[in-house]
Computed example of a mutant assay.
Amino acid sequence: MSLIRARYMLQRGEARLSSVLLLLSVLAVSWLLWSGLYKPLVMGLGAFSCLLSAYLAYRMGFFRHHKALVRLLPRLPGYWMWLLKEIVVSSIDVTKMILSPSLPISPTVVKLKAQTKTDVGQVIFGNSITLSPGTVTLDMHKGEVLVHCLTSDGAAELQKGEANRRAAALEHK
């Protein structure tokens, strides 16, 4: 295959068969581990969902970012552990607020400058914010992230930049 053709394929989001098979493998293993159901119908639906996800990833140009994703893989488990801890802490905080008779909320919108440099890093940062109860990423444009926080304390915590720093650390070697 010529270099020009390969570059054109990458620009369009096309991928080598090995990249597609790697994505399918990760999706299938994840699905099998998380579903816990191994009946033929459910397995067939799981296989269909993995194939559909891979097709949609192809159509959205996922494979243009394949190299960036491969570089992130070794650092993701540590990030996921930190994110899981943050989700649990946020869940407890939101539960306390909801159960409090005074309902101590102070909705706030903040604009953050993402420290991540790549599209993949910015998406990880924005999705991590949204996964934490009490915060929602509203918009992301040119490295700026608009976030709705349930409380001003939550907004202040985000502005300290720990989540931003950890998401950016995923990109660095």
Rank of each mutant, 00 (worst) to 15 (best):
Y79Q: 03
R165G: 01
S53M: 12
R165S: 10
S19A: 05
V136M: 11
G46H: 05
A168L: 14
N164C: 01
L17Y: 13
F48K: 02
G161W: 02
S91N: 15
H141W: 11
L24P: 07
T116E: 11
W82S: 09
L170F: 08
R59C: 08
S128M: 07
R5K: 15
K67G: 06
H148C: 07
S18T: 14
K39T: 15
R5T: 15
W34S: 12
N164D: 13
V120M: 03
G46W: 07
K67R: 15
P101V: 10
L150D: 03
Y38L: 09
L3I: 00
V94W: 00
A68C: 03
P74A: 07
V89Y: 01
L131W: 07
L56H: 13
A54C: 11
L10A: 06
Q159A: 12
S102L: 15
K96M: 14
H148D: 14
S30E: 07
L103C: 13
L83K: 02
V70R: 09
G154S: 08
S35W: 14
V26C: 11
P40D: 08
A68E: 11
I4Q: 01
L138G: 06
V94K: 02
K67L: 12
L56V: 15
L158F: 04
A167K: 12
N127Q: 03
L131T: 04
S100I: 02
A47V: 15
L99N: 02
T151I: 09
L10C: 03
K113E: 14
R165A: 14
S2L: 09
I87N: 04
R75G: 13
I4R: 00
G154C: 06
G126W: 00
K67H: 11
V42W: 10
E171V: 00
L131M: 12
S100F: 00
M9R: 09
R166H: 06
G126M: 02
L84K: 06
K67C: 08
L150Q: 00
P107A: 07
T130H: 06
G126T: 09
L41P: 10
F125S: 02
A57K: 14
R5E: 15
K85C: 15
L27V: 04
